[in-house]
């Protein structure tokens, strides 16, 4: 019997006062719930770990894609490229972009390299492939699997328009819409940056 189950069963029987594990820090809560440290390979052919090398201590923008996608993903990649340029002129903090393929068997590092270069997504941007099980685990953990397994099996990109972004050390995470105006995408990414790091546009 797993330890938490045993503990709660005894507690529920009133045999011992229930004890809970001490609360985790915000970043530990997020790491344990959502960020498995699986091995991956970048478009440069470099082996990396998801949490240690791509998220830890960073401000990150994360999305799903695949290189042969002809409909929505190229538009989202193009929007993110524009947003990245806007951010560069507006913030002092570095923002890392990570794109995870949902077709790791097709998307070799070479193919992702070509995709990155076609989109001029070359600075602070990693396109990532790897073992299919690891990419699928990340798709599930990051909330991209549809809750309806039948729908999810038919289309594994049903939620891919929602781009994750966050400040890992501060455990501030949310989603932006990949089809939004790049100016607005950039503005929203600054929400997880310290006030002093942002030259904010004024809403009139």
């Amino acid at each position: 019997m797993p330890e938490p189950l045993r503990r709660n069963l005894f507690a529920a029987l009133g045999l011992v006062p229930r004890t809970f594990a001490p609360p985790d820090s915000g970043r530990e809560v997020m790491r344990k719930r959502y960020f498995p440290n699986v091995p991956l390979v970048t478009h440069e052919g470099r082996p990396v770990r998801f949490y240690d090398d791509l998220l830890k201590d960073r401000i990150v923008v994360l999305n799903l894609m695949y290189a042969d996608c002809t409909t929505l993903c190229p538009m989202i990649t193009a929007n993110l490229v524009k947003a990245q340029k806007i951010l560069a002129s507006r913030v002092t903090q570095e923002v890392s972009f990570v794109s995870l393929t949902i077709k790791p068997l097709d998307d070799t590092p070479e193919k992702l390299r070509a995709y990155a270069s076609m989109h001029h997504a070359t600075t602070n941007w990693l396109f990532v492939t790897g073992q299919p099980g690891n990419l699928e685990l990340l798709r599930q953990k990051l909330g991209y699997a549809d809750a309806n397994p039948d729908k999810d099996r038919k289309d594994r990109a049903l939620h891919s328009g929602m781009v994750r972004y966050g400040n890992e050390p501060l455990s501030q995470w949310s989603s932006i819409q990949g089809s939004a105006d790049p100016e607005w995408i950039a503005e929203e990414i600054t929400y997880v940056m310290p006030t002093g790091a942002v030259r904010r546009t004024t809403v009139r």
């Binding site: 929505l72 049903l158 328009g161 990949g178 939004a180 607005w184 546009t201 809403v203």
Partner: peptide, 17 residues
């Protein structure tokens, strides 16, 4: 909602601007 999961009003997305 768009095909890739973005919530919309009249097919468009929110902005404060």
């Amino acid at each position: 909602q768009t095909r890739d999961g973005q919530w919309t009003i009249n097919g468009r997305l929110f902005s404060c601007a």
